[in-house]
Design a protein around this nucleic acid. Sequence first.
DNA 1: TCTGGGGTCCTAGGACCC
DNA 2: TCTGGGGTCCTAGGACCC
Length: 422
Amino acid sequence: MTVFALVDANNFYVSCERVFNPRLEGVPVGVLSNNDGCFVARSNELKALGVKMGEPLFKVRDLIRRHNVRVLSSNYALYGDMSARIVDCLSCFTPDIEIYSIDESFLDLTGMEHRDLIEYGQGIRATVKRWTGIPTCVGIGPTKTLAKLANFAAKKALIDGTSVCDLRDQEVRDKLMTRTPVDEVWGIGRRSAAKLTALGVHSVADLRDMDTKRARSLLTVTGERIIHELRGMACMSLDLLEEPQKGLAVTRSFGQPVIGKDELLSALVTYVTRAGEKLRRGGLVAGHMQVFARTSPFRGDPPYSGSGQASVSPATDDTFELIGHATRILDRIWKPGFRYAKAGVILTDLTPRGQAQPSLLDRRDTDRSKRLMAAMDAVNSGMGRGTIRPGMASATKGWGMRQESRTPAYTTQFADVPVVRA
DNA sequence: TCTGGGGTCCTAGGACCC
DNA sequence: TCTGGGGTCCTAGGACCC
């Protein structure tokens, strides 16, 4: 019998901000997506005001002002670093960890059943809180799906209000599932929930008791697997080894609509440059590139979405080669007269650099390219991203990201380290 | 004026092969 | 009038996740 725990940070981005600014405690706080567009993290106080996940900022301006909500731009340097610190804490409890997302990890507790796992979970929470300042909840169950559900219950204080919930017990599970709506299940999104509701499947218990064949025809094998997991039969194991990444994307909405081709190109070159950095950091080369540019679906502008692709052969991590491909793709998809709102580059067919298929016809000076890229990366990591960049990337105008209230990179930039006076 | 970004997995359908 | 069957591979699109 397997036992999994899911450790999930509470309102993670908000909690990170609160660690460095205690004045944010006890008041409504929200963190915005890129471009200061939508809320992607909310404190409990903000949730209580009815602001939903993904709510666009401009739609709730009034409410924000009335309740003096603290609104922050997202600070990924901070959140990424805090996330790594939490994983370090968890590593002290077990080596069997799957880092599931920036604020969630699964732990394999199989074989620890002789211990009081609620107490163990409390120990994890206390350690993470003491060492990083971040509050978490712990969900425990015989399958990943049940550990997820347990975590949900812990967050909502549905079982005993202790922020740790153990769903190994059948009766506890029954009770929770009967009163939990089906769309709270991990893997049941809006579409599937609508299909299920139409068939009279409303609660998690209803889904658990559904005929698996029926579920499969409605929701494919994913749905069938979820039902088995809800019944306590583990279908998913922990991914302890990091799987090689399959694709990589850099896409952004513009701060203002882009009309000219040069401007669009300079945005794309900036994104491709960033994509190249990500490739090299991961020791990867890309064999395929997709580029897209589109108008806004919200503004009522004439719609256009252009997208084109190219195979990158031989596969490369050289920013300038990638820019060449992107430029040619843009030439094919560019249409004048539209107000472009977003563009991006997606790299796929990723392989580890050493493993890439070499080509007999390859006449590139790869050694020179490698040295140039290494030099650029060294300068930019030491002096800040974009210190050295391709010339075409420099024509930043209105497309640059809006970030009106980003907090300092407290933990990753020396200049931003907080000063304590005593 | 202002509506995120970056991933994974699954399936259907087309192309191709013998 | 007749028009196979079965396999693989690839891609686009849908759904979901945080």
